[in-house]
């Protein structure tokens, strides 16, 4: 388990000003989970992540991994501790003068593994990431996605308990991103490795994370189940972060007509499969005009948004709104009704 206990990091930048990159962050990461930390650039998420393997020392509070205060480690203890934590990077950071196989072997040499063990395990690892045929080429001949696969093979070479991903897919195209995320998910399922993933893209979190922590200006503003945070963001910053995925804009003229309520229906899980809209039409004699809609799948759970215009008598409208709010995840009337 990783425990951030009131972690703060501040340092002076090149101009000599004090920068508080991380401010009093506290939360826990459970064994075996995939947790995403999202935030805009400069939110302090990378700095926070680096306190897990002491690439960054906290200036306040402490980061505790499996009961060990990471900040207190040094020398051989720190080296051994780092062998149990893998890390992958946005720019892959492979050693350009070593071949693919040598890059993976390098991690094991550092951990003091025997020559026989290395020569046995490296092909296994390359097989795992689907690069068995590229063992003897140099990284500069690989594509971005392949480089990241080598990075992953290297990161898990010493059977770490934790894998840190620092914007691991940010330099990749959407398709390659999906491949890499699938591989990470597979590794998490297969070996039970805890994955902490940093990204500025909520899409990445949606695809593989179970929980998400949202950071803004060095502070933790929200943490929770991805589905909950996604469907019910509490903090303004999270709402802004999510707005581009969830703002379904309708022309303003439609919101002006307050005799016809404009309703945003958010539905999820099992309710998503019921014919709610059809029931409104059937049972309340209200016409439903669908103006906009979208369905997202988060952790395989459907989450949909519909914007509809309801047309009917006042009583029927009230009843149907009542029915909708009882039978959907959330129902919001977008234009004020008198």
């Amino acid at each position: 388990m990783i425990k951030f206990d009131n972690v703060s990091v501040s340092f002076s930048n090149k101009k000599g000003q004090l920068v508080n990159a991380v401010k009093n962050v506290s939360f826990d990461i459970e064994d075996g989970e995939i947790l995403g930390i999202v935030g805009t650039s400069g939110a302090g998420k990378s700095t926070l992540l680096r306190t897990v393997n002491q690439l960054q020392l906290p200036t306040g509070g402490k980061t505790v991994v499996n009961g060990v205060d990471v900040g207190g480690l040094s020398g051989g203890d720190l080296a051994r501790f780092r062998h149990s934590i893998g890390m992958i990077f946005q720019q892959f950071n492979l050693v350009s003068t070593k071949t693919v196989a040598q890059n993976v072997a390098f991690a094991m040499e550092i951990a003091g593994r025997s020559r026989e063990e290395i020569s046995r395990r490296v092909p296994e690892l390359l097989d795992l990431v689907g690069l068995a045929d590229r063992a003897d080429v140099y990284p500069n001949t690989l594509s971005g996605g392949q480089k990241q696969r080598v990075g992953i093979a290297r990161a898990v070479a010493n059977n770490p308990k934790i894998l840190l991903c620092d914007e691991a897919t940010s330099a990749l195209d959407p398709e390659t991103t999906n491949d890499v995320l699938r591989l990470l998910k597979e590794i998490n399922a297969k070996f039970g490795i805890t994955i902490v993933l940093i990204t500025h893209e909520f899409d990445v979190v949606k695809k593989i994370c179970q929980r998400v922590a949202v950071m803004d200006k060095g502070e933790l503003v929200e943490i929770g189940d991805v589905f909950d945070v996604f469907t019910k963001p509490q903090h303004d910053f999270t709402k802004t972060l999510l707005s581009h995925t969830f703002d379904l804009d309708v022309p303003e003229r439609l919101t002006l007509d307050d005799a016809k309520p404009l309703v945003k229906i958010i539905y999820n899980g099992e309710k998503a499969e019921d014919a709610i809209v059809a029931n409104v039409v059937r049972n309340y004699g209200v016409d439903v005009n669908i103006l906009h809609g979208k369905i997202e799948y988060i952790n395989d759970k459907p989450f949909g948004i519909l914007i509809v215009q309801l047309i009917g008598t006042k009583d029927n409208l009230d009843n149907s709104l009542d029915y909708l709010s009882k039978n959907t995840y959330r129902t919001e009337v977008l234009n004020e009704r008198n």
Partner: peptide, 23 residues
Amino acid sequence: VDNGVIEASLAMGATWLRIVTNV
């Protein structure tokens, strides 16, 4: 030499001597 590679080596627990000779 790319700083990121040095950081990656440190993250793997490499000593400075190994980083000098290998990276």
